[in-house]
């Protein structure tokens, strides 16, 4: 039964990945990307990694893909223009793709695993512990430095985004609450006598 589900998820995933790059409408591409992510989550569930499956849904589908959708809808990108050179480069692309595909096929068909691999990869989890708890226990102990190095990567991304996009424009009108609060009728209201039938 898991094998059947594996093939269902895998087939839909590959098919929707193909649609992502072939769809004419970019919004459809993003929607199919979401479908691909959901099937990927299904594959994770099948292999017993429920935490990764849920993270995939929450982070990729919930945040990244929605952000994608916003960007695609808000930016006026001319996708027809982007695809202009498509036919021109198609033969070369297909040629390179076929070579790589054939080589990967050779690797997949003649795949061997080191005899030591099974013992090296084994990481038995005690029966009374869930997958997520086990992950949490090593993430903050054994892999704490990796966790902190990832934090540095994110810090770099944050600084980088600010450096590249923050503009200090001098002539922008900003709200100054102090100034607003200190206004009073005496110095902002001006009373003028307007003569009858003429403007100010």
């Amino acid at each position: 039964m898991p094998a059947v589900f594996f093939y269902i998820f895998a087939t839909i995933m590959i098919a929707s990945a193909c649609v992502v790059i072939m769809a004419r409408n970019p919004v459809h591409s993003v929607l199919f990307l979401i479908l691909a992510f959901c099937n990927g989550a299904g594959l994770f569930l099948l292999s017993g990694a429920e935490f990764l499956a849920l993270i995939l849904i929450v982070v990729y589908v919930g945040a990244v893909a929605v952000l994608f959708l916003f960007v695609v809808m808000m930016l006026d990108v001319d996708f027809a223009e982007l695809k202009q050179g498509f036919a021109e480069y198609l033969p070369l692309g297909v040629g390179v793709g076929l070579v790589v595909f054939a080589e990967l096929g050779m690797v997949a068909l003649g795949w061997q695993t080191s005899p030591l691999a099974a013992s090296a990869a084994a990481s038995p989890i005690p029966d009374n512990m869930s997958n997520t708890a086990a992950l949490g226990q090593i993430l903050y102990t054994k892999y704490a430095v990796f966790f902190e190095a990832s934090a540095m990567v994110l810090l770099t991304a944050m600084i980088g985004a600010i450096v590249l996009t923050l503009h200090h424009r001098p002539n922008v009108k900003r709200q100054s609450i102090e100034e607003q609060n200190s206004r009073n009728a005496k110095n902002v209201v001006e009373i003028k006598k307007v003569p009858f039938r003429t403007g100010v």
Partner: peptide, 16 residues
């Protein structure tokens, strides 16, 4: 990783 079952360089060296 698929071949050696480990990410450490010494482990890969043993497997290879």
């Amino acid at each position: 990783y698929g071949f050696a079952g480990t990410v450490s360089f010494s482990g890969i060296a043993q497997a290879v």
